[in-house]
Every structure is written in structure tokens, then in C-alpha cells.
């Protein structure tokens, strides 16, 4: 499958901006893992008075769009306040890159999640937020699932209303998710399952994540993506 990357993606992949580490960084965060083949590490300088990101650099283990989205993310983050970062959406990066193939949309989620992790870590260290929001509830799980995209359409499972059932057992830390899967998405089942496990598994208190697929008819509006 030849991938059609936009000229901006190619440009950022070939000549990535802000590559490397900041030695005396105020915040460092890694998103993703080697097993997923998708991993970004950011290091940031944050001004404690203005809360502005004065410098940010990245390292990447991933494909061309992983490198390009991380490069674009650093350009967009530099000079912004930490509140701006919190409001950033993966779509902002996608738009700035002139679009991404649907199957690569998850790279922009990783790129923006990494920035948010770094900012959150900085806030925690500076006592600006407390880390007591540990309740494993529908809101937290839904929020996590917003980061899981259907690789065929590039839409999140939540936006595409593909979550059929969600059961949370707080005592045992067990989360059960049933996803609607049409025939066109069958080849991505393994990937979707892995992504759900990873995203929900990262939530505090989640011990066991069970994923089940329910065959369904094509959902019309996504059919021709």
C-alpha cells in the first residue's frame, strides 16, 4: 500500500525540527513503546513565571509520520503556554501537516499526548495540580478511548460511536469494552485491541482490560474513506 503523504509531512520527515534532548530540561516525557513501534520522547524548558514553553525537543522511534508529527508538534508548542497545550487536539497537528493518511492519524494522537504528558508532569512537580484523580470511571475510560482511532477512517472509536458496551469493575480494576467491528475493519482488529489495552491499561487502577468485538453492518458514512 503506497502511502500518500502530504508535502509538509515529507518535509518534516526529511528535515525534522527540534531533534534531540535538552540537557537541563524542566520536563521529560515518553509516550508509546518499542513494542508498538511508535514512541516519542520530549524534553522541555518551561518558564515558571509565564508558564510558557521556551524550548522543546524530541526523539522518535517510529515511522515517517511519527517523526513528522513530533517535529510539527514541537514547532506548535514552542512559545505556547501550558494551558494552550492542554487545549491542543491531535487534529491541530494533522491540519498543520496538510493532512495525514487515515491509517497514520494515530501518530498525531501520540504526538499531542506526549506534549500533554510532559506538561502534566511539570505541573505535578511544581505542585500546580494534584495527582489524586484516580477514579476509574466511565469518564476516564471514555477519555482514554478518544485516543483510540479506527485506522481505516482515522476517527476515534468514541466519535464513530463504535463502543457498544463498557463495563467497569472498580474493585477488581477490570474494564470490559465491546467494540462494533464491520467486515472492512476486521484486518485491524488486532491493532485496535492492542491500542485499547494500551490506552486503558495506562489508567490508574486498571488491572485487567477485556476487549470483545461484535460484528456489525458497515457504518455508511465511513464506508468510502
Amino acid at each position: 500500500m503506497a502511502l500518500k503523504y502530504s508535502p509538509t509531512v515529507i518535509e518534516h520527515f526529511t528535515k525534522p525540527q527540534n531533534v534531540g534532548d535538552i540537557c537541563d530540561a524542566d520536563a521529560v516525557a515518553t509516550e508509546g513503546s518499542p513494542a508498538c513501534g511508535d514512541m516519542i520522547t520530549y524534553s522541555m524548558k518551561i518558564n515558571p513565571q509565564t508558564r510558557i514553553i521556551e524550548d522543546v525537543r524530541f526523539r522518535s522511534f517510529g515511522c515517517a509520520s511519527n517523526i513528522a508529527t513530533a517535529s510539527m508538534a514541537t514547532l506548535m508548542a514552542k512559545g505556547k503556554s501550558i494551558d494552550d497545550i492542554k487545549k491542543m487536539s491531535h487534529r491541530d497537528i494533522t491540519v498543520a501537516l496538510g493532512g495525514l493518511p487515515a491509517v497514520k492519524m494515530h501518530c498525531s494522537v501520540l504526538a499531542v499526548d506526549g506534549l500533554k504528558s510532559a506538561v502534566k508532569q511539570w505541573e505535578l512537580e511544581h505542585g500546580l495540580v494534584s495527582d489524586d484523580n484516580h477514579i476509574l470511571d466511565r469518564t476516564a475510560v471514555t477519555e482514554a478511548l478518544k485516543g483510540v482511532l479506527n485506522p481505516r477512517t482515522g476517527c476515534s472509536l468514541i466519535d464513530a460511536k463504535l463502543i457498544n458496551r463498557m463495563e467497569i469493575d472498580n474493585d477488581e480494576g477490570r474494564v470490559f469494552i465491546e467494540v462494533m467491528l464491520c467486515e472492512l475493519d476486521e484486518r485491524f482488529a488486532e491493532n485496535i485491541e492492542e491500542e485499547i489495552r494500551e490506552k486503558i491499561g495506562a489508567l490508574e487502577g486498571a488491572q485487567k482490560v477485556l476487549v470483545q468485538f461484535k460484528p456489525c453492518e458497515h457504518i455508511g458514512k465511513h464506508l468510502y474513506f
Binding site: 518499542p34 513501534g37 515511522c63 497514520k104 484486518r187 488486532e190 491493532n191
Partner: peptide
């Protein structure tokens, strides 16, 4: 995985015992 049609690494490479990374 990124170059495969299903976003999972090659079944041949995992069959000969390669780790995903």
C-alpha cells in the same frame, strides 16, 4: 507494522521468534 496493511508486524517475522520491536 507501519508498513503492513493491518498495522501489526509481519506474521513471518513473529513466527521465527522476533520481538515486535
Amino acid at each position: 507494522a507501519c508498513s503492513s496493511k493491518s498495522l501489526v508486524p509481519s506474521n513471518v517475522l513473529t513466527a521465527i521468534g522476533l520481538l515486535h520491536e
